[in-house]
Structures are given as structure tokens and as C-alpha cells.
């Protein structure tokens, strides 16, 4: 007997289990057209946690990889590591700008470590400019360390936390 409830049972039950002829058949048609490696995503419907948690970065740290370009603002109450390109302002607790990274805008936080290029402004309690740093713009800081080889074009202003409006502690902003 076939009813609307039973006629698809053969196909629908194994789909929930994940790997079945029915599931593979539905995936196979578009898959063969694209021939792209989509396996992790396909199988994840049954094992969703594996995809997000095993491949996850260490908790709390955001990584902007070198293939990522962000146009806009980033705001975090945790740490950010930038290896890519950011056109806009970055605000976090600890910001690390990697050797090949570029930021056009203001980078602010408790601690900013620069190994790449910043075109704009840095506002941080503690600023570290490594030997590969390229900084164009002002640095507002309380505590700065500059390695030999770092390029700075701009003013170093030791006023972080003292001056009034524009520099606010990160915690007040986020939350």
C-alpha cells in the first residue's frame, strides 16, 4: 500500500543517516557537473559538529587570513590576528597585524603588534612595531617598542588614555 506517508520511506529514512544511495543520487547529478571537492560539506549534515568544531581556530581568536579582504569595521572584545587586507577600522583587545597584512584605517586596542603595514592610525596602550612594520600615520600609545628596521612616518603621541574623547578603553565600547 502506498500513501503519501509511506511511498518515500525507502528514500527518506536513510537520508537522515547520511550515506545512502538516495542521498548520493541527489548529490551526484550536480556534483558531476561541477566536479568540485565538496565532500566535507556534503557529509556534514549527519555529523555537523565535526565541520565547525574540529576545523575551528583556537577559541576567541579571530584570524583574517591573507586571502580575505574586508571593507568595513571590525569590532571584537577578544583578539584579532590580521594577515589579509582591511579597509576600515579595527578595534579589539589585542590586534596583531601580520607581515603581509595591510590595514587602511585606525587600529585600536589594549595591545597592537604591527609586523605589516598600517596606513592610518594606531591607538593602543601598548604598541609593538617589529622590524618589518610599516606605519604611516600617528601612533597614540602609552608604552611603545620599536625594533630596528621599522618604518614610521607620523607622530608618536604618548597620550593613550589621557586625552578625552577619541580614545576609549575597549571594554567600554564592546559591551
Amino acid at each position: 500500500m502506498t500513501t503519501i506517508f509511506t511511498r518515500n520511506d525507502k528514500g527518506s529514512e536513510p537520508i537522515l543517516a547520511g550515506n545512502t544511495p538516495a542521498a548520493e543520487k541527489s548529490d551526484a547529478a550536480p556534483g558531476s557537473q561541477n566536479a568540485l571537492p565538496t565532500d566535507p560539506l556534503k557529509h556534514s549534515l549527519a555529523s555537523a559538529q565535526a565541520l565547525t568544531s574540529t576545523a575551528s581556530a583556537p577559541r576567541g581568536v579571530s584570524v583574517i587570513s591573507r586571502a580575505l579582504k574586508i571593507t568595513g569595521q571590525l569590532e571584537s572584545s577578544e583578539d584579532i590576528q590580521i594577515e589579509g587586507l582591511v579597509e576600515g577600522d579595527v578595534r579589539a583587545v589585542t590586534v596583531r597585524v601580520g607581515p603581509d597584512a595591510r590595514v587602511h584605517g585606525t587600529v585600536s586596542g589594549d595591545e597592537v603588534e604591527l609586523a605589516g603595514t598600517v596606513d592610518g592610525k594606531i591607538e593602543a596602550k601598548k604598541v609593538v612595531l617589529t622590524s618589518s612594520a610599516h606605519m604611516t600615520g600617528d601612533v597614540v600609545h602609552q608604552d611603545i617598542s620599536i625594533q630596528s628596521g621599522a618604518y614610521i612616518s607620523g607622530n608618536l603621541i604618548p597620550d593613550y588614555g589621557k586625552s578625552e574623547s577619541n580614545v576609549q578603553p575597549i571594554k567600554a565600547m564592546v559591551e
Binding site: A57, G60, V63, A67, L68, G72, V174
Partner: peptide, 29 residues
């Protein structure tokens, strides 16, 4: 085929808020 996924993935952490356009080759978590 392999090109975009060879790129290191990006992770945007739970506390991060992004306003704007994200343009990426590869995986974005």
C-alpha cells in the same frame, strides 16, 4: 580546482562583529 581551498581559512571569532564587505578566496568560518 584546488586553488581557493589551498588558502588558509579565516576565522571570525564569537566576539567579533564585522560591518562591511568580506571578500575571500577559501574557507571562511
Amino acid at each position: 580546482k584546488a586553488d581557493p581551498l589551498d588558502q588558509p581559512p579565516s576565522h571570525l571569532g564569537p566576539a567579533l562583529k564585522v560591518t562591511g564587505v568580506l571578500d575571500m578566496d577559501g574557507d571562511l568560518y
